[in-house]
Computed example of a mutant assay.
Amino acid sequence: MKVAIVNYGMGNLHSVLKSVQAANQLQQMQAEVILTTEPDEVYQADKIIFPGQGAMPDCMAALQRSGLADALEDGLRRKPFFGICVGAQLLFECSEEGNTAGLGWFQGTVPHFQAALSTDGRPLKIPHMGWNRVHQMQEHPLFAGVAQDEWFYFVHSYYLRPEDPSIILGTADYAGDFACIVGRDNVFATQFHSEKSHAAGLQLLGNFLRWDGTF
Rank of each mutant, 00 (worst) to 15 (best):
Q53D: 10
A55F: 09
A55M: 15
A55Y: 04
M56R: 04
P57Q: 11
D58W: 08
C59M: 07
C59A: 15
A61R: 14
A61S: 12
A62L: 02
A62N: 14
A62H: 08
L63D: 02
Q64A: 10
Q64M: 02
R65I: 03
S66W: 04
S66C: 03
G67L: 09
G67Y: 06
L68N: 02
A69Y: 01
A69V: 14
D70Q: 14
A71I: 06
L72D: 09
E73W: 15
E73L: 15
E73P: 00
G75F: 00
R77M: 10
F81S: 01
F81K: 06
F82Q: 12
G83N: 13
G83P: 11
I84M: 07
C85E: 10
V86D: 12
G87C: 05
G87D: 06
A88L: 15
A88D: 05
L90M: 14
L90F: 01
L91A: 07
F92T: 01
F92K: 01
F92S: 00
F92N: 04
F92I: 04
C94A: 09
S95C: 09
S95E: 11
E96R: 11
E96D: 15
E96L: 12
E97T: 11
E97P: 11
E97D: 10
E97I: 11
E97C: 14
E97M: 04
N99E: 12
N99I: 05
N99Q: 10
A101L: 13
A101E: 12
L103F: 00
L103H: 03
G104M: 04
G104V: 01
F106P: 07
F106S: 03
F106H: 11
Q107C: 11
G108V: 10
G108N: 05
T109S: 15
T109F: 08
V110E: 11
V110K: 08
V110R: 08
P111G: 04
H112Q: 08
F113I: 07
Q114D: 08
A115D: 12
A115C: 00
A116M: 09
A116G: 10
L117I: 06
L117A: 14
D120M: 08
G121V: 04
R122D: 11
P123A: 02
P123M: 08
P123E: 07
L124E: 06
K125L: 05
K125E: 05
I126A: 04
P127R: 02
H128S: 00
M129D: 00
G130S: 04
N132S: 15
N132Q: 01
R133I: 00
R133W: 00
R133Y: 02
V134E: 08
V134P: 01
V134S: 01
H135D: 01
Q136L: 15
Q136V: 03
M137I: 13
M137W: 01
M137D: 12
Q138M: 12
E139T: 12
E139D: 15
P141Q: 01
L142H: 03
L142Y: 00
A144Y: 03
G145V: 05
G145S: 00
A147R: 12
A147L: 07
E150G: 13
W151C: 07
W151I: 09
W151G: 08
F152L: 14
F152G: 05
Y153E: 13
F154Q: 03
H156Y: 04
H156A: 03
H156E: 04
S157L: 02
S157M: 03
Y158C: 13
Y159F: 13
L160C: 07
R161T: 14
R161P: 08
R161Y: 10
R161K: 15
P162C: 09
E163G: 10
